[in-house]
């Protein structure tokens, strides 16, 4: 337990560093030097020194962002807690709590977007909603399946794949960053924010990436079958590795369009889920 808390705190502090690394690696793929590794920390710290400009619907907004952050921290804490004994041994309560929390995060993001009186932000919010509808159910099903510890090797590996894809979607990266799509929405959901409020939004987007990477790392490590402290350590180490993979994937792809993204996700995830059901049914 203590170790889980320590791991969670460490990861929270490291998340902006991972994000800095992400930017550095992306820059390398762009053949340039890129920012210092601590850049995301610098950005966040700077935002907190700026004046507070409360946007329209500001009170709501602040509350929603705070809740969102709390939910993110809580969900990453649950993940680290589960990490200490492997995903296959998670209790139903923990699994449900995690799934509810991720849905809460997504919903709050939409509320946050819609609470701002800006058309770009609203479009962004609705896009986020459509994406959530297409990714969350699969995330929930695969998570629950893996948590139940049931199923054959084949079905477990398919479930892990579904979890990996849907957790990538919730990280808000290209091609699924359509809610903040810069060209058409001018950074969408964040357009009205400034200063510390934007700082909070930045932290929450970094934490989203952390939860996403940790989730995949956890699934993979559990798949290998480690447990105890070694499992926790492995997850902590695997998280930046997964983050790195996410980085590379997002750098070499382009942004999708809301209809294309959803169609693609449904096709892919349906295919995987059918394989999952089939393998379960056949007991492979």
């Amino acid at each position: 337990m203590l170790y889980s808390v320590a791991a969670a705190v460490l990861s929270l502090a490291l998340a902006p560093v991972y994000d800095g690394l992400e930017r550095k690696i992306r820059a390398a793929i762009h053949t340039r030097i890129g920012p210092p590794i601590l850049q995301t920390w610098y950005d966040i710290l700077k935002l907190f020194t700026k004046e507070i400009v409360v946007p329209v619907g500001g009170a709501w907004y602040t509350l929603v962002t705070a809740l969102e952050l709390l939910a993110l921290i809580a969900s990453s804490a649950i993940l680290y807690h589960i990490s200490s004994y492997g995903l296959g041994h998670a209790t139903l309560l923990e699994s449900v709590a995690f799934i509810v929390l991720t849905s809460v995060v997504a919903t709050l993001a939409i509320v946050r977007a819609v609470s701002q009186n800006n058309v770009f932000s609203v479009v962004g919010g609705f896009r986020e909603f459509s994406l959530m509808l297409s990714a969350e159910p699969f995330l929930a099903v695969s998570f629950l399946l893996l948590a139940s510890g049931a199923g054959s090797l084949a079905s477990k590996s398919i479930a892990t794949a579904v979890l990996a894809v849907s957790s990538y979607v919730i990280s808000g990266r290209v091609p699924y960053d359509i809610a903040e799509a810069e060209p058409e929405l001018a950074s969408g959901v964040n357009i009205e924010l400034a200063g510390p409020l934007l700082g909070l939004a930045t932290i929450s987007s970094v934490l989203k990436k952390l939860v996403s990477a940790t989730l995949t790392a956890l699934a993979l490590i559990s798949f290998v079958g480690l447990s105890g402290l070694s499992s926790l350590t492995a997850v902590v180490i695997a998280t930046p590795v997964v983050w790195l993979v996410h980085t590379v994937v997002s750098t070499i792809l382009g942004r999708s369009r809301v209809d294309l993204a959803i169609r693609f996700l449904y096709v892919l995830l349906f295919f995987l889920s059918s394989a999952l059901v089939l393998s379960f049914g056949l007991g492979l």
Binding site: I29, H30, T31, R32, I33, V248, I252
Partner: peptide, 12 residues
Amino acid sequence: ILEIALRTGRVT
């Protein structure tokens, strides 16, 4: 693109 990037290195 990764291969191109690896070959080119950093031009900055």
